[in-house]
Design a binder for these strands. Structure first.
Lengths: 196, 196
DNA sequence: AATGACATGTAAGAGGTTACATGATTGT
DNA sequence: ACAATCATGTAACCTCTTACATGTCATT
């Protein structure tokens, strides 16, 4: 029986409080969007697996409103499995940054195309940065002083730093490429300016 | 006929000069390691597919040394396919940062464990940063003034910035967690210090 | 009346990892 | 002699994405 990280993400989220699959998805997106993502088609089957393994339990809400809503809670077994996982070293991080690939092959494209890729990259970063800032603001406004909130803010701040770094890089990169275009001089020296 | 990004990475690398599968792997690792990765088990089958599609050609080296070495070159069709791809918008970036997940669930672990995860994260970042710096140094020493080198340095510098940002975050995060341990005060306010 | 958020799911296929398997060449 | 690097590949399995499919509830 092998456990994927997906299972532990779900256990980790449920270890704070009971939630639905939909809630889990939303939480990962808003609070962990800079370093993880997960789709509904991973969440729903995994919830059933975890339930079968006795790591979580399901409560179907059959209130006045007769809804489909299924709220999952972590069990004692689930909690100890989660805590065990937390003691193990994490897998090395991976990134997939297709835009950077296109920029790396920039000698095969026009300057305009490359700048467009960088601008798109910057737009995505800016949007995610704003998203993080609003989540942080909201969390602080709620005066949520739980342990969980402390760690959430900690990880959000890494996302903040990374998006800011990428955003700043984008500005410098565009300037360098534009210079490169006009002067046509030694490209190498221009790239070095950035690196030094 | 659907094309995965892997096919374009290979085309992009071969558009600079002919290489073996092994060379391609090495190049991705050293020059693009901060934003992409690719394994041999993706490279070798993909090379065969690209050859069958007429986008690359193979030359088996049967020199005095009688080697197994297969050098691939891009064709005209391959080049135009690559250039077409470069005009299309890139897929949004994705990250998988398991360590951050473990830190986010830090209320379920001991402070020591969390700090260990952050230290491991920092070690990985430092190693990759040093790697980038040495590659940059080498490229500059070779006075490689090609277009390709300009873009390589540009993308390497993003990696540099990101690794530096992550590394700095790690230092601050460890300090905050240590304070958190000793004073035990309002965790929320401590996290806010970082965010503001 | 329409839109967006809430809510749950399936199927097929693409993409990627891990473990296995082998062997030559180069440098110390 | 030994280690590192060069060099190519397969099979099984796991993971993940995309497209499909449906329906409620709250707000404007």
């Amino acid at each position: 029986m092998k456990e994927s990280t997906t299972e532990y993400v779900i256990l980790g989220i449920l270890s704070n409080k009971p939630r639905t699959g939909y809630d889990i998805h939303k939480l990962v997106k808003t609070r962990m969007g800079s370093f993880w993502d997960i789709s509904y088609s991973q969440i729903y089957p995994t919830l059933r697996v975890l339930e079968k393994e006795g790591l979580i339990t399901k409560r179907v809400e059959v209130n006045e409103r007769e809804q489909n809503r299924k709220v999952y809670s972590i069990t004692k077994e689930g909690t100890s499995k989660l805590q065990q996982w937390l003691t193990e070293p994490a897998k090395p991080p991976t990134f997939k940054f297709e835009a950077l690939l296109k920029i790396a092959f920039g000698d095969q494209a026009s300057k305009g195309q490359i700048i467009k890729h960088i601008e798109e990259l910057k737009a995505i970063n800016t949007a995610q940065l704003e998203n993080i800032l609003s989540v942080e603001k909201e969390m602080k406004a709620n005066l949520n002083e739980s342990e969980r909130a402390f760690f959430a803010l900690l990880t959000l701040s890494l996302g903040e730093n990374l998006h800011r770094a990428a955003s700043e890089w984008a500005d410098t990169a565009i300037k360098l490429i534009e210079q490169h275009k006009q002067k046509g001089g030694t490209k190498h020296e221009q790239a070095c300016k950035m690196v030094d």
